[in-house]
């Protein structure tokens, strides 16, 4: 990681099998730093699988085999010296259904810090500061500053999802992976999360998997279209939607299938 790579994530000829089923076929893609990259494609095309490769969380879900290379911030993440714990600290993930832990808002935000530091090195003032900073960054501080001790699972869904994003921030991640982060939310909340993503872009590289093409168009700077485990096309978002190079991309964004 000596020279800062201009790409946050780069894969080369990435193949992945679940048992005998090949879910990813020869994926080579570059994800630019500090931007929002959308992954679109019909159900089962492998976009969530690809997302889960970027912090190697796939390996926790059972029988997974991969070949090829993934560089995150210029570092090959399959290199033997890579610690999954450090990798996941730098590459956090947000899920379809908000998944706050059934503990207080405060404890949710500092959960990552607690996991990564010795108990005796934690100072109350540092933790308080981290909570305020993270919650402010996602726009929850004003709403929740007097309710830090309420159980996170009792919040509204939108707040829960923002909290799940805030939970990653104290670890100072470089990349935030989002797996259909709005599909459990209503229109209004979706809009708020999208706004949040746009304010977070720049400081963080964001990769978002979405079913919703309009959403990809609204929030992403670059967009990749996947089909049946293959990467069909990657381009600037407006180019992909206006002048797709591949006929399959054109058919998908026209709504002829998927």
């Amino acid at each position: 990681m000596s020279t800062p790579a201009q790409h946050s994530i780069e894969t080369r000829d990435l193949n992945l099998w679940y048992g005998d089923f090949q879910a990813l076929k020869g994926i080579s893609v570059c994800i630019p730093r500090g931007q929002i990259t959308g992954l679109i494609g019909p159900s089962g095309c492998g976009k969530t699988t690809l997302l889960r490769c970027f912090n190697r969380i796939n390996e926790r879900y059972g029988d997974v085999r991969t070949t090829g290379e993934i560089d995150v911030l210029g570092q090959n993440i399959y290199a033997p010296e890579v610690s999954l714990i450090e990798l996941r600290k730098a590459v956090g993930m947000v899920f379809q259904r908000p998944n706050p832990l059934p503990i207080s808002v405060y404890e949710n935000v500092i959960f990552g810090i607690r996991v990564h530091s010795e108990r005796k090195n934690l100072k109350k003032s540092d933790l308080d500061e981290a909570v305020e900073k993270a919650l402010s960054e996602v726009g929850l501080w004003e709403d929740l500053k007097d309710r830090l001790n309420v159980r996170a699972t009792s919040l509204q869904l939108e707040q829960q999802q923002k909290l799940c994003i805030a939970r990653l921030l104290p670890l100072k991640p470089d990349i935030i992976l989002m797996d259909e982060p709005c599909s459990a939310l209503d229109v209004e909340a979706t809009l708020h999360i999208e706004d949040l993503m746009l304010t977070l872009a720049g400081r963080y590289t964001i990769v978002i998997v979405t079913h919703n093409m309009a959403q990809a168009r609204r929030v992403s700077h670059e967009c990749s279209f996947m089909l049946m485990g293959e990467m069909v096309e990657t381009a600037r978002t407006q180019d992909l939607f206006l002048t797709p190079r591949d006929a399959r991309t054109a058919d998908y964004i026209e709504g002829r299938y998927g």
């Binding site: 714990i85 600290k89 956090g92 899920f95 832990l101 959960f111 939970r167 990653l168 670890l171």
Partner: peptide, 19 residues
């Protein structure tokens, strides 16, 4: 989903189990 939340902040399995 609780386990996923833990894994994705880099918690080990034991931390996930304990917390």
């Amino acid at each position: 989903s609780f386990r996923e939340a833990c894994w994705n902040v880099g918690a080990t399995r034991w931390q996930t189990i304990r917390h």
